[in-house]
Computed example of a mutant assay.
Amino acid sequence: MRVWAVANQKGGVGKTTTAVTLGGLLAERKQRVLLLDLDPHGSMTSYFGYDPDTLSQSSFNLFAEQEPDAQAINALLLSTPCEGLTLLPSSMALATVERRAAAEGMGLKVSRALAKVWDQFDYVLIDSPPVLGALMINALAASERLLVPVQTEFLALKGLERMIRTISMVTQSLRKDLNYTIIPTMFDRRTQASVGALRELRNTYPNTIWAAMIPVDTRIRDASRNGVPLSQYSADSRGAAAYRSLLKSLLSQQDQRTPA
């Protein structure tokens, strides 16, 4: 099983869209994909028509004092309209995890939970909250790869600086290597601000940025409104083509790192 986390300390940069779209594309490749929503706001959960305010069973259960076994984790899973794509939803209760984290030492709860369903999925994509805390640390600790969507505008670049510092700090604390890829999102070639931000991203992070970008595409919003991954809603859209290219790049890098 491969575990990828999608994270940024700035909201509104395309985290949920990236996780759901890549998950849908992996499912099209006949991969068994788990989408894990660790954001108390529950954007990924809402994407598929579930209400995080009313769910009594959610990823919050992974942080219980008595850790759930495989059967209990399976009871938390919800279906999606996409074959091969399963959701472990969020709920508002996740917001209480931060208050308990220091006392209970819960930094590896998600890692231990995923180990119990390791053979059930080929990929897990974690949508983490835009705040450094126990939930993001759990996402980073559980993952082997980090995807960092960054909106191509200058305020988002400042948020990226904080995220890069966080990656360094957390990986040192966890004593693990974590490959990360910066993904420029919401690119609009018609605006100088977007073009300039992309140029700065490429100049500042030449070794960790994906070579292309995710364009502004209204089909992305439409897919979300209809509760299906972008490639299922509009396979020939510009956004779907861009995410297809991104996935191809990520899988190629993964293959290069996998020992023969």
Rank of each mutant, 00 (worst) to 15 (best):
G42I: 08
L155M: 11
S46N: 14
F187V: 07
V124R: 08
D188C: 01
D37Q: 13
D255A: 10
L178V: 03
P215G: 09
D119P: 12
T181V: 02
L132V: 12
L135E: 14
D53G: 14
M163K: 01
V148R: 03
I209V: 02
S91G: 11
L147I: 08
P40V: 01
S234Y: 10
E153S: 15
Q9C: 10
G49H: 07
T258A: 02
D51V: 11
Q120H: 04
I183N: 09
V117L: 11
L198S: 05
S237E: 00
M163C: 00
G12F: 13
V110S: 09
D122T: 07
K158E: 04
A75L: 12
D255P: 04
V3F: 12
G12L: 15
I126W: 06
D222W: 05
V216E: 05
T80C: 09
L198T: 02
V6N: 08
Q71G: 14
S46M: 13
F60C: 13
Q253T: 03
L87A: 11
P184K: 08
R219L: 01
T191N: 06
L250K: 05
Q9S: 13
A260W: 10
H41L: 15
M186W: 00
S59R: 02
G12M: 15
L160E: 06
A156P: 00
F187A: 06
I73H: 10
L25K: 10
Y123H: 00
L34D: 03
V150H: 06
G49V: 03
L251Q: 03
Y205H: 07
L25F: 06
A156L: 11
T45H: 09
S194E: 01
K15V: 11
A113S: 11
L160R: 09
D122G: 00
A223P: 02
N61E: 07
E28Y: 08
S234M: 10
W4A: 14
N207H: 00
V131G: 12
T166W: 09
P89M: 09
A101P: 14
S143V: 02
P206D: 07
S234D: 01
P215M: 07
V97N: 03
Y205V: 05
E98T: 09
Q232T: 13
L246S: 01
L198M: 05
T191R: 04
L87K: 09
F48A: 12
F60Y: 15
K116R: 09
S234P: 08
L246T: 02
G133E: 09
A72N: 08
